[in-house]
Design a protein around this nucleic acid. Structure first.
Length: 594
RNA sequence: CGGGAUGUGGCGCAGCUUGGUAGCGCACUUCGUUCGGGACGAAGGGGCCGCAGGUUCGAAUCCUGUCAUCCCGACCA
């Protein structure tokens, strides 16, 4: 491809909304253009990158025997209702774009394809003899993100590879899951990414075992906790650790504390000479459940601990038997709307009476009480006394209502690991580029995807599901491979592997040699660019650096003697060699390696 | 949905306090000089100043409303 014909428009200014380097560079380099919030056009260079990534993904999945398909993006509501996800995905803060067609049928734009593919598998796969099967698709998916940001990192329309596997038993599912984890590691490696697998929460998709593949980068939206020995890595949403030990309260009689205006743990401790780990804080939350219940929660944590909302949501979902769609602090405004008296926020204890909820208009009138082990393991502690400006010193759990013991705190860097107490957790930020799940029979039960087993009995298929954010991965690669001057693509996913820059196209010798090298590269099957624009050399160098082509051959001053300059983009290493050598060196460097 | 900010040629911004009919840089067009690290000069083209009301002889500027976008948070493959 000739740069003069590429519609390449590079920018010196960056749109004000591009914050992180990868987003800025993709816009500046003419890879993407914003069309609307969270919506991007993939320009010709970008599409080549996405195509290359997809090819690597296909290659690895096909090797596992997976079958590529293409599924509808516009999906009927009905299977989503059967799986129980329509409500949660469309109501309120739901993330599924949805609409009614001209017949009044409800349809949604697929954020993912479990429902469609499970129905399909149920139709096609009738016998254990047909299993296992893995179907995958690489296509656009939609999510009405609450806050799109960082360009392709969190956009409302994005390209994703989703694979779904179907099995007759757990062992078979586990085998495919393991194979897939291996394929993922190879895919990311071949794309030139430093990605690590971490334990993850399975989120709204649901299911059992789950692993995320994270590209470590400061711009990452996820916090990863890991140990130096490499034996443990988990998303903070899921991470566990040994909490720091608490200081015991000094001996003394239990007593009431006057705590005027001390509504935070910080104030309480400062005013009374306490350490946060000697206190129990109680959060009053409301869980909106899928079955329509609005369930007030009373959540107790040791004062120095942070609530982990993902863990809490999972615990509540499990304990109350209906998915928690949303959990948020109860506000004075909400209490008023329910016709309830104000609560003494800032002085609430684990024994706040259910009577506080009596007469509530739509809420369940009893608290669901749960407590983190860090709180329950305190022998004596300080907590709110359920009346304003009053706390209690030296309280014990024996005097308080029964709590459901649930791990609902955030593990943090600096805490010791469960697997080996010598190991201390460290934190890094990561970009989630892949996620694999063992779904089990959640969807096949709901959508009645059954098969006939060896004994002639009907059984639900067991499923796995495996995603890779293709467009996100491309940007993550930039986040991981760039410098001051621009992008440094890994050869395997670069839009072009080599760019031949003719320093001065007015010079016939330079132009002829440039054309000849370009022709040779093409003949050898290399993706090559020829910068034949009548720009000054400096402009072409800047552009080549910015768009990040891994190898550059400069045909310039020494063209007369047949010598050219060979430059490796990432390292900036430069050598001036006869053009035949430059060609053979590049061919060698660019040849795919596995 | 809360908190904050901003809407002025394709992009980045100034002008608004103290109303007088729009300007700078980048990009674009033409000509000349230049020609290995985003050149210089000259001449051009392109904007009903987010939208709707209002105040005023006169509104980008003041007032009211509205819409949109961005940032922080909640939320999230």
């Amino acid at each position: 491809m000739r740069v003069s014909r590429l519609s390449l428009v590079t920018l010196r200014n960056v749109p004000a909304d591009a914050e992180i380097p990868s987003h800025q560079l993709l816009v500046r380099g003419g890879y993407i253009r914003r069309v609307g919030p969270g919506l991007y056009a993939y320009l010709p260079l970008m599409w080549r990158v996405l195509t290359k990534i997809s090819a690597i993904v296909r290659d690895e999945l096909d090797k596992l025997g997976a079958l590529e398909t293409l599924l509808p993006q516009l999906q009927p509501a009905e299977p989503w209702e059967r799986s129980g996800r329509w409500q949660g995905y469309t109501a309120g803060e739901g993330i599924m774009f949805h609409l009614e067609d001209r017949q009044g049928r409800r349809v949604g734009l697929g954020p993912t394809h479990e429902e469609v593919v499970t129905e399909l598998a149920g139709d096609l796969l009738r016998s254990y003899k047909q299993l296992p099967v893995t179907l995958y698709q690489i296509q656009t998916k939609f999510r009405d993100e609450i806050r799109p940001r960082f360009g392709l990192m969190r956009s409302r329309e994005f390209i994703m590879k989703d694979a779904y596997s179907f099995h007759c038993d757990q062992a078979d599912l586990e085998q495919t899951y393991t194979q897939m984890a291996g394929a993922y590691a190879r895919i990311f490696k071949r794309c030139g990414l430093d990605a690590v697998g971490v334990d993850a929460d399975s989120g709204a998709i649901g299911g059992a075992a789950s692993q995320e593949f994270m590209v470590m980068a400061n711009a990452g939206e996820d916090l990863i906790l890991s140990t130096p020995d490499g034996c443990y890595a988990a998303n903070q949403e899921k991470a566990v650790s040994i909490p720091s030990s608490a200081q015991a309260l000094p001996a003394g009689e239990a007593r009431q504390l006057d705590t005027p205006g001390q509504t935070t743990i910080e104030d309480l401790c400062a005013a009374n000479g306490l350490s946060p780990d000697q206190t129990v804080k109680v959060l009053v939350l409301l869980a909106r459940l899928e079955d329509g219940r609005d369930q007030p929660l009373l959540v107790s944590l040791r004062g120095d601990q942070e609530l982990n909302e993902v863990k809490l949501t999972n615990a509540v979902t499990q304990q109350l038997g209906s998915p928690a769609l949303e959990i948020a602090p109860i506000t004075p405004e909400q209490l008023r709307q329910q016709g309830l008296a104000p609560l003494p926020f800032g002085s609430i204890g684990p024994d706040l009476e259910d009577a506080s909820l009596k007469g509530a208009k739509s809420w369940t009138s009893r608290f669901h009480r749960l407590a983190d082990p860090t709180a329950l393991d305190l022998e004596r502690f300080v907590c709110g006394a359920n009346s304003p400006d009053q706390h209690r010193w030296g309280t014990t759990w024996t005097s308080l209502p029964e709590q459901i013991r649930s791990d609902i705190r955030n593990a943090k860097a600096g805490e010791r690991s469960l697997h080996n107490q010598e190991q201390v957790l460290e934190e890094r930020r990561g970009i989630e580029v892949g996620h694999i799940f063992q779904l089990g029979s959640k969807y096949s039960d709901a959508l009645e995807a059954r098969f006939t087993d060896k004994d002639g009995k009907q059984a639900s298929m067991l499923m796995g599901c495996y995603g890779i954010g293709i467009s996100r991965l491309a940007q993550a690669a930039v986040e991981q491979h760039h410098d001051e001057a621009g992008i440094c693509w890994p050869v395997s996913i670069a839009p072009f592997q080599v760019i031949v820059v003719v320093a001065n196209v007015q010079d016939d010798t330079q132009l002829a040699l440039g054309e000849s090298l370009y022709g040779s590269l093409q003949a050898a099957g290399v993706d090559a660019l020829l910068d034949d624009r009548s720009e000054r050399a400096g402009v072409k160098f800047k552009d080549a650096d910015l768009i990040g082509i891994p190898w550059r051959i400069v045909v310039g001053r020494e063209a007369e003697s047949g010598r050219v300059e060979l430059v490796e983009r990432a390292t900036r290493s430069t050598s001036t060699v006869p053009h035949q050598d430059a060609l053979s060196d590049v061919l060698e460097a660019v040849r795919p390696r596995r």
